[in-house]
Write a protein that binds this DNA or RNA. Sequence first.
DNA 1: CGTGTATTTGACTTTGTTCAACACGCGTGG
DNA 2: CCACGCGTGTTGAACAAAGTCAAATACACG
Lengths: 242, 242
Amino acid sequence: VPDAELADLAAASSVLQIPAGAILIEEDEPAADYFFVTHGTVTIFKLMPDGRRQIFEFAGPGSLIGPGASDTSAFSAEALEPLRVCRFTRSRLSALLNRIPAMERRLLELANNTLAAAREHMLLLGRKTARERLASFLLAWSRPALARGALSERTIRLPMSRLDIADYLGLTIETVCRVLRQFCAENIISFPTPSELVIRASAALERVADGTVLAARQPRSAAAKVPTAATHYAAVAQACAG
Amino acid sequence: VPDAELADLAAASSVLQIPAGAILIEEDEPAADYFFVTHGTVTIFKLMPDGRRQIFEFAGPGSLIGPGASDTSAFSAEALEPLRVCRFTRSRLSALLNRIPAMERRLLELANNTLAAAREHMLLLGRKTARERLASFLLAWSRPALARGALSERTIRLPMSRLDIADYLGLTIETVCRVLRQFCAENIISFPTPSELVIRASAALERVADGTVLAARQPRSAAAKVPTAATHYAAVAQACAG
DNA sequence: CGTGTATTTGACTTTGTTCAACACGCGTGG
DNA sequence: CCACGCGTGTTGAACAAAGTCAAATACACG
């Protein structure tokens, strides 16, 4: 979310309205433009040859979407809802980067944030149960949604379908439904309509999300190791010999 | 893998040797230094409160490891083997960045590559079967390993344990063992010793890796949709109205 | 108000996990 | 030199979480 640079950016970009379902970026296509989302949500995903899909991110207002340095994009991007975006051509953006040095640092910071989020998501996909995944997702989605003003008091709109949620969390539609209903039954959340969420017990949801609850069993991963700061400094302090 | 900048970097860094098992970076600790790996392998991971672990990356020679912009690191880093690394303090690195503008672009590129790899890994964790995960991993590990010269003809060293592989792929030790043995039985690979891999049929391995084989069943994800370039351009070409 | 899609629910199957032995390599000390 | 102990890797059998298939219901939209 740049600040002073916004004026400069506006000059170099064109504002577009895009209908739901439109493909902004397609995997393996020559990497075209960058998009800055101002309204709406974009799904960032990859497909396997047989059609399995993994969604990496629901990119909302404030997100910058662009293929990296490579010539063809490594992912696809699709409008989940009607969108308003600013489009930059690649050349214009790199011209901007040369002109405004701070911009580059801004982009680096942004890439690092995206990477941190990706890693959190990898933890979710690799190690969390279905309940933990749904709880994490609802919390992560609701936080910014509530911050930038929700529908009403505590009602959050979920613009994505159950299938999208499933493909984001590495689950199936049915599991997503079942777990959401389970949360309803436990009075943790409720659904005025299937796409409107109310969080009734965020504390409970948070406990579920990081596995604090129902985690009596001891996993076999690197649990025993308690590598405290002591180990840390001892190791790094070793004399250099290269 | 910078080039001309290397001399500059060398001046600003100190070379360290680090024993296996040492913690370079610890999650939630104040973000200290950056490390450039020259020899050995570092695991980048995150733990859940109950000890479940997800490994994001086995960072080998040429990798730069550093906490992002935030004040505390979002992940941990541990020496998988005895290491040789160059350490930069945060301040020295940012001094370098100010002095050499190309460096910043280099870092941005690097971050984008890491992000692309992370996304590929997310696809693996969220949507691939155990066989596909192992096949993908063996290929991904062997490619650079073979490139920079392996033990002998086609023998690749796996410096990580089965537990590390499991935590990298979001599986259990047992599943990793079983699938690897299965591949052996199918004459796709063989293990002179448990940590020495020989790939006998890389084509077969590649077919397994992207699910081209044994994927008769039709998944329910976004399969039907065939949003070709047509959709794409139609959408983006919409007149701007913002 | 009817039609088509999205969501929900139920019954059953599968994949991968859990629990429990067992094998193997290797370093230590008798 | 060999018995022992320990850590890592391997294997088998029972189990469970999530997936599949199928059907009913709810919702949105013309």
